[in-house]
């Protein structure tokens, strides 16, 4: 990406902007990480309290049919189930900050179950594809932007958005399951 960007800049004469942007982005990454440090840690803290109170077990139980359908052959009772369940529920509720730590832990465990190989196996692929198919049901921020920009009915996108999200998730799931069936 960097090489492509620099080559393009050489042709478009955007070199100055590129060098400013490179330094700026690196700075931005650190300030983003500082924000994340607060929000993400708050969530992992709350998640740990939820785990202590037995709520995570309940959530995982609720999601078990979905997990078993998407990830056949995962060891039952393993903590990876819990991470997948909390990641998906946080995504559906639109709590991106809460979803990421659970998601990272889920993939880490999936990788460990796969013998720590640098190659993504079918479970990791399915997990990330489903994650990337957008699970969020209520697009809160978009609704807020719409009302800010004078929409007569900001929420009118809600049903279309749920429909479109269902389309993308269904396509992602079908793709992941078909590929798994064909290539293992």
């Amino acid at each position: 990406m960097i090489l492509f960007g620099i080559v393009v800049a050489a042709f478009t004469g955007n070199m100055g902007r590129v060098s400013a942007e490179a330094i700026n982005s690196a700075k931005e990454a650190v300030s983003l990480a500082i924000t994340m440090l607060g929000v993400m840690s708050l969530w992992t803290g709350i998640m740990e309290v939820a785990k202590g109170a037995g709520l995570m077990d309940k959530l995982t139980g609720l999601m078990r049919p979905v997990i078993r359908f998407l990830f056949p052959g995962l060891p039952a009772g393993h903590r990876v189930n819990e991470y997948i369940a909390s990641n998906m529920i946080a995504n559906i509720l639109g709590l991106g900050w809460a979803a990421t730590p659970a998601g990272l832990k889920a993939v880490k465990e999936l990788k460990r179950l796969n013998g720590d190989k640098a190659l993504a196996n079918a479970n990791i692929c399915t997990f990330l594809i489903v994650n990337m198919s957008s699970l969020q049901l209520i697009p809160v921020n978009i609704i807020a932007y719409r009302s800010q920009y004078g929409s007569a009915n900001p929420v009118s996108i809600l049903v279309p958005a749920i429909f479109a999200t269902t389309c993308s998730t269904a396509a992602g799931v079908v793709f992941a399951l078909l590929w798994r069936k064909k290539h293992g």
Partner: peptide, 27 residues
């Protein structure tokens, strides 16, 4: 949460720089 965030920071720096360059260059 601290460990998770610090773990992804190096990737974040590399990635955001790359995206920034791509955007600024017109790529």
């Amino acid at each position: 949460g601290f460990d998770v965030t610090l773990g992804i920071l190096p990737t974040l720096i590399g990635l955001m720089t790359a995206v920034g360059i791509l955007r600024a260059s017109g790529g």
